[in-house]
Nucleic acid binder design. Structure first.
Lengths: 153, 153
DNA sequence: AGTTCATCCTTCAAATTTGAACAACACCGC
DNA sequence: GCGGTGTTGTTCAAATTTGAAGGATGAACT
C-alpha cells in the first residue's frame, strides 16, 4: 500500500460496471429472499443448503464442504443447519471414517419442501436475472462472472 | 402460482450464469468487506454511506434517500449512521422544510477517512472485479446488470 | 379547520452473522 | 509410536440486520 504512488481510479465505464454489479447483486438477493420467505418460509441460505444436499450423492455432504460451497462461515452454517434440523428437513449423521466429521443429510421432508419451493424460486430467478438478459449477454455474464468467482478462491 | 402448469427450468447455460452471478457477488462482497475492515476499520455499508454523502450537494442527504440508494432498510440505516456518528464521521442535522426529516452530513473527519480508505478500496475493486473483465465484457456486464438493477425498483 | 392517508425516522425484540476460542481428532514425518 | 501441525464442528458473546410498531408530521381534499 505504501508503495503505491498513484491510484488508478475508475473511469465512467468502470464505475458503471461496478455500480451495476453492486446494485444488481443487492436487489436480486433481496428479491429472492422475499420470494422464498413468502412462498416457502425458507431463507435463501436455507434453500441453497437444500439444493446442494439434493444434488449430492446420498443426499448428504460434510459440514465443511457445505460451508465452502455456500461461501459462508462455519458457525453460520452450524446455525442454519440447526434451523433446518428443527424443521425436520435435514438430519445430522456422524462420519464413519472421521470421528470429527458430520454429514448433513436431506430428509424426505426436506426433499419434498425443496420440490415445492423450487418452481417459485426458479420463476423468480428468471424474472429477476435470467430473462432480463439477452442470449449473448447471458453467455458473457456467465463466462465473466464465473472467472471472477474462481479468482477469489 | 397455481396457474402455472409447467416450470421453465434453467438449462445448463442459464444455470451457469445464475451460479456465476451468485458466487461472484458473494465472494466479491466478502473480499471487499475484509479489505475495508482490515485497512480502514470500516464496513462496506459504512463506506458506501461516506461515498454517497461525499458526492451529494452540501455533503448531506436525507435518511430516506440514503436508505434507498443503499438498498437497505430504514432501521438498518439508522443503525449504521449511528455508528458513523459515534466515530465523528457523520453528523445529523434536522431538515428546515420538514420537521420529520433528518439530514446525514459528512464531517471533515469523515471526508478525511474516506480519502484515506478510497485508494485501497478501489484497488480491491479492480483486483476482484474490474481488472478481471476484458474490455468488451466490462461493457456488456455494465449494460446488462444495470438493466437488472433498474427492473427491480 | 377537520379528516384521511402517506411519509419520516426511530425504537424494540427477534433472527441472523461473524470471528475467536475451544476440544477432539486426523495426518505426517521422524 | 510420538510430537507437531492442521482440521473439524460447535459454542459463545458481540455486532448487525430485519420487520413490525409507533409517534409525529406533511399533503391533499372537503
Amino acid at each position: 500500500m505504501g508503495l503505491m504512488t498513484q491510484t488508478r481510479w475508475l473511469d465512467e465505464r468502470e464505475k458503471a460496471a461496478w455500480r451495476g454489479f453492486l446494485e444488481a447483486s443487492h436487489r436480486v438477493e433481496r428479491r429472492l429472499e422475499q420470494q422464498l420467505k413468502e412462498e416457502s418460509g425458507l431463507s435463501h441460505p436455507q434453500y441453497e443448503v437444500l439444493v446442494l444436499l439434493a444434488d449430492a450423492p446420498g443426499r448428504e455432504l460434510r459440514m465443511t464442504e457445505l460451508a465452502h460451497a455456500l461461501i459462508t462461515s462455519k458457525s453460520g452454517l452450524t446455525y442454519q443447519v440447526g434451523q433446518l434440523e428443527k424443521r425436520g428437513y435435514v438430519r445430522r449423521r456422524s462420519c464413519p471414517t472421521d470421528v470429527r466429521g458430520i454429514f448433513a443429510q436431506l430428509t424426505d421432508e426436506g426433499y419434498e419442501a425443496l420440490r415445492e419451493a423450487a418452481p417459485g424460486h426458479v420463476a423468480a430467478v428468471r424474472e429477476a436475472l435470467i430473462d432480463v438478459l439477452e442470449p449473448d449477454e447471458l453467455t458473457v455474464v456467465a463466462e465473466a462472472l464465473s472467472r471472477v468467482g474462481h479468482r477469489l478462491r
